[in-house]
Write a protein that binds this DNA or RNA. Structure first.
Lengths: 123, 123
DNA sequence: CGAACAGGTAACCGAGAGGTTACCAATAGG
DNA sequence: CCTATTGGTAACCTCTCGGTTACCTGTTCG
C-alpha cells in the first residue's frame, strides 16, 4: 500500500498523530474519531499495509503503534524534491525564449525547441 | 486544496519530480505522462491549489514551476510525527496491563482502565 | 458456562477522483 | 489573414474510497 495514499486521509493522519503520543487500542482510537469502529479498523489496516503502524495482540485487545521507520520513504522522497538541481532547466527555459525570439527576427535556428522536446509525433 | 491529497496521486508526484529538474510547459509534461493533456492540466491545477507549483504565462504557453515552500507544511507535519513524546503512553499502556492482571488476582482497583478511557457511553 | 467486550470482515451505498473526448480562447508565425 | 499551437474547461463515465449496519470470532471474567 502506498504510504502517500495512506497519508492523504485526514482521519488516518489523526490516527497517526494520536499514535505518536503512544500506542493505543482500537476502541480508544475510535472514541476520538467520531466515526464507527469498523471504519477505524479499515483505516488502521491501510496504515498497517503502508508500513506506518504495527499491531500487537494482547489477549482480546490489539495495540497499535506508530512505525516511524515507515515515514522514511515519504521524507526521503520529499528530500529529493527539495534538492534543487545542479543546473536548473528553468534558466535553459528562459534562454530558450530568447533564442526563439531571435529566431523570429533572424529566421534561423528553428531547432531551438529541441531543448525541451515536445514530441507530438510519438503521441 | 490539501497538499497531502495532492501528493497521493502517482501522476502528480511524477509531475513534481519532473518540475524539480526545472520548469516546464504543459505539452512537455504531458509527453512524459502517457495520459491526455486535459488530465495533466487538471493535475497541475490540483498541485497549484495545493501550493506545490506555480504557473507563469509567457505568451501562449504556460510555464509551471515547483514551489518548494509548499512542501513545508508536509515536511513539518512529518517532523512532528517523528518526534517521540517526552513520555510515551505505551509504557503507561504496558503498566496498565500489569495493574489489570494484578486486579484480576486481587480483585481490586477496577478503575485501572481509567488510564485509557474507552467511553462507550458517549457513542 | 455464559454474558460482555474487543475487533475484524462482508455487503452495501453514495460521493468524488480521474480518465476521456469535444470544444473554446488566445497567441505565434508563414 | 489564416492556420497551427498551447492550454484550459465542460460533459460524461467508471471505479475506487470511505462510510454504515450486520455478523462473526476470540477473550475475559462473574
Amino acid at each position: 500500500m502506498d504510504p502517500f495514499v495512506a497519508l492523504a486521509d485526514p482521519v488516518r493522519r489523526g490516527l497517526l498523530v494520536r499514535l505518536a503520543r503512544g500506542s493505543a487500542r482500537v476502541v480508544d482510537l475510535t472514541a476520538e474519531q467520531s466515526i464507527s469502529r469498523p471504519a477505524v479498523s479499515r483505516h488502521l489496516r491501510v496504515l498497517s499495509e503502508a508500513g506506518l503502524v504495527t499491531a500487537e495482540d494482547r489477549g482480546r485487545e490489539r495495540h497499535y503503534r506508530l512505525e516511524r521507520d515507515g515515514l522514511a520513504v515519504v521524507t526521503d522522497w520529499l528530500a529529493t524534491l527539495e534538492q534543487r538541481p545542479r543546473f536548473d532547466e528553468s534558466v535553459l527555459d528562459g534562454l530558450d525564449l530568447e533564442v526563439r525570439r531571435t529566431g523570429r527576427d533572424r529566421r534561423t535556428a528553428p531547432d531551438a525547441r529541441a531543448a525541451h522536446p515536445s514530441q507530438e509525433d510519438t503521441a
